[in-house]
């Protein structure tokens, strides 16, 4: 088993306004919102950190148990996701505290901007995860399973404790776990990515999700 925890820092991925608007609950263009969104993007540009720490783990799935050697979790959905994989990348990613500060600031001053920064944060962390996974795909020269995080399907949030114990993200990327098992900074992701299977990643990630009544569901 590879025991090395590695870190990567990314340059700012391009902003996708359409995706941000989707997170903000807009299904179409509205000029006054676009103007405000541009203002928000200008304010947040170059202010965020894009950091990931990760390590390679081996995986054996037995029934609903996913055994990563250093810890194991019970999740039927994750077991299905990782079926046939021998290795996974476990990673933690964050865009840092500044986005939380902006959300907090405008929460007091302008709820519209708070909503937009919230949406920007969601888009940013997804963009970071995409950039990281694209890297891994290239480095390992392999297909990837869709990334799978605690809270997806039947994978409990308590798996965060295991993940934090083996990734040391507090020290590596400044990511901490709250007693509620949510993370601070809030725009952060931890996930398993199965390596070496045939490509299942769809261009429409929503199609993999079972929550069909989700308001954010892409068409």
């Amino acid at each position: 088993m590879n025991s090395v925890i590695l870190s990567k820092t990314y340059i700012e991925p391009p902003f996708c306004e359409k995706e941000i608007l989707r997170y903000a609950g807009c299904r179409g263009e509205r000029e006054e919102i676009s103007v405000l969104l541009k203002e928000c993007i200008d304010e947040v540009k170059d202010k965020l950190a894009y950091k990931v720490c990760y390590r390679e783990l081996s995986i054996k799935t037995v029934g609903v148990t996913c055994d990563f050697e250093v810890f194991s979790v019970h999740s039927e959905k994750l077991a299905r996701n990782l079926k046939g994989c021998e290795k996974v990348i476990l990673f933690a990613a964050t865009v840092g505290v500044e986005i939380d500060r902006l959300i907090g600031k405008y929460g007091r001053l302008s709820p519209t901007k708070a909503l937009l920064f919230q949406a920007i944060g969601a888009e940013r962390i997804e963009a970071l995860c995409d950039a990281f996974c694209a890297d891994i795909k290239k480095e390992y020269n392999t297909g990837l399973e869709p990334r799978f995080s605690p809270g997806y399907g039947d994978l409990p949030l308590s798996a965060q404790k295991n993940i934090f114990a083996v990734l040391d993200p507090e020290r590596r990327i400044g990511l901490t776990l709250n007693s509620s098992l949510l993370m601070s900074p809030s725009k952060s992701v931890t996930a398993f990515v199965g390596l070496g299977n045939t490509e299942k990643t769809s261009s429409n990630k929503c199609s993999l999700c079972e929550k069909t009544d989700c308001t954010l569901r892409g068409v």
Partner: peptide, 9 residues
């Protein structure tokens, strides 16, 4: 949309 509602508010 929600952001518009908020801008008006």
């Amino acid at each position: 949309y929600l952001p518009q509602l908020l801008m008006s508010a």
